[in-house]
Amino acid sequence: MNLTQLAAFFDRQHTPVDGCNLSAQEAAITAHEKFSPRPFCLVSQWTILDLHVGDEELNALRSRGLEPVVVYASCVVLDSRRRYQPSDWVRSSFQTSYEAPSFFLTKNTVYVLLGRGKRQVITVDDLSALSGQ
């Protein structure tokens, strides 16, 4: 997916969503206190992507405790394990739970959604293109 396609992808119909209104420092402290010892990743410029899947795929994910939802963020603010550098982009794995308005949990990481973001539905093909697969 080139930059033009990526921009068009994120200009599709979406719903604005509020995230965490804390400063990055306050959000890091909160994530550490609330979810320790799990690693966390503070992100901005984020989109919650609801993956449109069939019943078979949905059942397969749910049988593993997962939901067909991922987060794509074009700006990592802080990663507690330093897997990503500030300003890197990141795409999460599938959601295990979501504590609105700002904590998106996967099996391995808590993503703290800073500021305002958006939510949109995508297809499996969109997700593959976004992931570069």
Rank of each mutant, 00 (worst) to 15 (best):
M1C: 07
N2V: 15
T4R: 12
L6W: 12
F10N: 09
D11T: 13
Q13K: 11
H14K: 14
H14F: 10
T15Y: 10
V17G: 00
D18T: 13
G19P: 08
G19D: 05
C20T: 11
C20K: 08
S23D: 07
S23M: 09
E33Q: 15
E33K: 14
E33F: 06
P37F: 01
P39F: 00
F40H: 06
S44C: 12
Q45R: 12
I48W: 06
L51T: 05
H52K: 15
E56R: 12
E56W: 02
N59T: 09
L61R: 10
R62G: 01
S63Y: 02
G65K: 01
L66I: 04
E67S: 14
V69Y: 05
V69Q: 15
C75E: 15
V77Q: 11
L78V: 11
R81E: 09
R82M: 09
P86M: 06
S87Q: 15
W89P: 11
R91P: 04
R91M: 15
S92K: 07
S93G: 12
T96M: 03
T96N: 02
S97Y: 04
Y98F: 15
Y98I: 14
E99S: 08
V110C: 04
V110R: 01
V112F: 01
R116N: 10
G117F: 08
G117T: 12
V121C: 10
T123H: 00
D126T: 08
L127V: 11
L127A: 05
S128Y: 11
S128C: 07
A129I: 00
